[in-house]
Computed example of a mutant assay.
Amino acid sequence: MKFSIVFDNYIANDRLESFWGFSLMIEDYFLFDTGSNGRALVRNMAKMGFSLQELKYFFISHPHWDHIGGIDSVIDENRLMSLFLPDSLSKFYVRDLRKLSREVKVISNPQKLFGKFYSTGIMEPIGEQSIIIEEEDFLIVVTGCAHPGVVNIIKRAIDMLKKPVLYVIGGFHLMRSTEEEINNVIKNLKSLGVEYVTPTHCSGDLAIEMFKDVYKDNYIPGGVGRIIEF
């Protein structure tokens, strides 16, 4: 698997634009979220060698501005994608996106999307879904902001597919958490068998440093422009 961070408030490549939000390319055909600024997203993707016209699938984790701000820019470039939208997104927005896309699927319950890709289904408190990728012996989880708690998301993935989670990438939403709270999250992820982590976006500087200290070589930094291959 190849993961390319195309939008993030952390920077891995100075040639790219950085604003608050998160977006990730999975391989070269699956876009996860859009960050907050669609024009910047499109420019970043072009500089990283991605063609919007080649996208086949488009996934939105939750309806916050810093994850859906680029939807219009993406749809303007490609109306032939399949969209996987959380049912927490405005029903009027969903209605309009149906007019502009080849296919729209509104997700509420845990389910298979296609191939080896699954949705955790909507998790509270704000109606957020995450992606689970099933490999032969393990799982990879992609989070938007992890408002439901990154530990809870990992537990759901394991419960759904009965395999360990090797790697989790995305926002961990720990930027307002105390050192003790972050330490508990790290201990829980370790106990669940998570071997590699990329906390970025809303994870917070303190949490990122703590994950780096604990996971050492198995901590993989984020930031716009970062390319991660397994």
Rank of each mutant, 00 (worst) to 15 (best):
N218P: 08
H147N: 14
S203H: 03
E103I: 04
S61W: 03
F114V: 01
L16A: 00
Y57G: 04
Y29N: 15
T143R: 07
L83T: 02
S101H: 02
N188L: 11
C202W: 09
M123H: 02
C145Q: 12
I140G: 03
I26T: 06
K56N: 14
V168R: 07
G144P: 07
I133Q: 02
I68G: 00
L41F: 01
F58G: 01
I5D: 01
G35T: 05
N78A: 02
G222Q: 01
V165L: 00
G121Q: 02
V74G: 05
G21E: 05
I75S: 10
C202S: 15
G144A: 11
T198A: 10
L24M: 14
L97R: 04
I186Q: 01
L31K: 08
G121I: 06
L85R: 01
F230I: 15
F230H: 13
E181P: 05
I11Y: 08
S73H: 09
G144F: 02
I227T: 15
F7W: 05
Q111M: 14
N218R: 13
N188A: 14
G193M: 03
F22S: 14
C145R: 12
R102F: 03
Y10P: 08
I75A: 10
Y10H: 13
I11F: 08
P148D: 06
I153T: 09
I153R: 03
A146I: 03
D87E: 14
Q53I: 08
H62C: 02
K190G: 13
S108I: 12
P110Q: 06
L83R: 10
F32P: 06
K47F: 12
K162E: 08
P125W: 04
L174V: 04
M48A: 12
S101P: 07
A40H: 13
I75L: 15
E136P: 07
A207R: 07
V194C: 07
A207Q: 09
M81G: 03
H147Q: 10
V168M: 06
D14P: 09
G70M: 06
L100W: 11
G121T: 06
E103H: 11
V214T: 15
S73A: 15
V150T: 05
G170A: 07
F3Q: 01
C202Q: 07
D205E: 14
V150M: 06
A207V: 06
D96H: 10
S177I: 08
R98I: 14
P110E: 13
A12Y: 10
H173K: 14
E179I: 02
L97N: 00
G21A: 04
N13T: 14
Q129D: 01
M81E: 11
T34K: 04
V194E: 07
N183A: 12
I71A: 11
V197I: 10
S4F: 06
S88A: 07
K56D: 06
L192C: 07
I182A: 06
